[in-house]
């Protein structure tokens, strides 16, 4: 019993130890994550150099974990989706979106279908997807869940469960593509950037899965930072982080996201996402 008691005291003593002044960031795990750590460790090195503050990447398993980490100040900066960004900033007063990808102001979701369904590409909403099996991406994804669900609800005036034979949540965009390609689900909704990247990389068998609809555009991914970062890391820190992100030009680094480059952003740009989320019922108001 004795060592155990000592252990508990030790633990208690350590829990109150002050936090080392390392700057932490995370990113939503929106695509294949096997080498995520290696990819983002490079970003951490880049930021460490630019900011002259030790910077560390914290890997997470889910969108919600990245939001929780931001809320708890386990990370001060995060690469969020539109929805997770709204959720995180709502919970942390003073938090601000500081940058987004060039593509993110006009982001698009692709509806994709297994070719065995015979569904063809169309300009208008593909009403024929009704009664098929359908997979979203992560439950907390903007392009993989929120926006597709919004357009589906708007067209059918019913919830996805009432429309489709089966509704699934694949977890990430790469998995959505894999599931629709293998036929496990007939139709799916996927982030267009991940789709284009994987098509270019030759991972997708386009004889088995094809794009059948492109949604109207909406704002999506963003870098968000906690408002108390200035107080913790020195006056003007947030501006320096923003600068570091906007001046990132190494293709090798930008491909991790994948984005052409980063441009400035602010909280107001994501109001439509908030309204959509309230509409779909993901956020209460």
């Amino acid at each position: 019993m004795k060592p155990v008691r000592m252990a508990i005291l030790l633990t208690l003593a350590l829990t109150t130890a002050p936090l080392a002044q390392t700057f932490h960031f995370t990113a939503i795990p929106d695509q294949n994550t096997a080498r995520l750590k290696e990819r983002f460790d490079k970003i951490a090195t880049y930021l460490s150099d630019k900011l002259e503050v030790p910077t560390k990447y914290i890997p997470v398993k889910s969108y919600s974990a990245s939001v929780a980490a931001f809320k708890n100040n386990d990370v001060q900066l995060a690469w969020f989706g539109g929805l997770s960004g709204v959720q995180a900033r709502r919970a942390v007063p003073g938090a601000q979106a500081i940058a987004q990808g060039e593509e993110d102001m006009a982001f698009v979701t692709y509806f994709i279908a297994n070719t065995s369904t015979g569904l063809e590409a169309s300009d208008g909403f593909p009403a024929a997807i009704e009664a098929h099996t359908f997979t979203f991406g992560s439950k907390g994804s903007t392009s993989g869940r929120l926006m597709p669900e919004f357009f589906i609800r708007r067209h059918f005036q019913k919830s996805p469960n009432q429309i489709f034979k089966r509704v699934g949540f694949s977890g990430d965009h790469s998995k959505t593509i894999a599931l629709v390609q293998s036929g496990s689900y007939q139709v799916g909704a996927v982030n267009f950037a991940v789709w284009e990247k994987e098509v270019k990389a030759g991972i997708i068998d386009t004889s088995k899965v094809r794009v059948i609809w492109k949604t109207p555009t909406y704002p999506d991914y963003n870098w968000s930072i906690r408002g108390d970062a200035d107080a913790a890391y020195g006056e003007g820190f947030i501006a320096r982080v923003k600068d570091a992100l906007l001046s990132m030009s190494d293709r090798n680094l930008l491909d991790s996201f994948p984005r052409a480059k980063f441009i400035a952003a602010d909280n107001k740009m994501y109001e439509p996402i908030l309204e959509t989320a309230v509409d779909v019922g993901i956020i209460e108001k």
């Binding site: 829990t15 914290i58 974990a65 929780a68 980490a69 809320k71 708890n72 100040n73 386990d74």
Partner: peptide, 10 residues
């Protein structure tokens, strides 16, 4: 505990 204590061993 994830949202309360965060992503740590505790």
């Amino acid at each position: 505990f994830l949202p309360v204590v965060g992503l740590n061993p505790v």
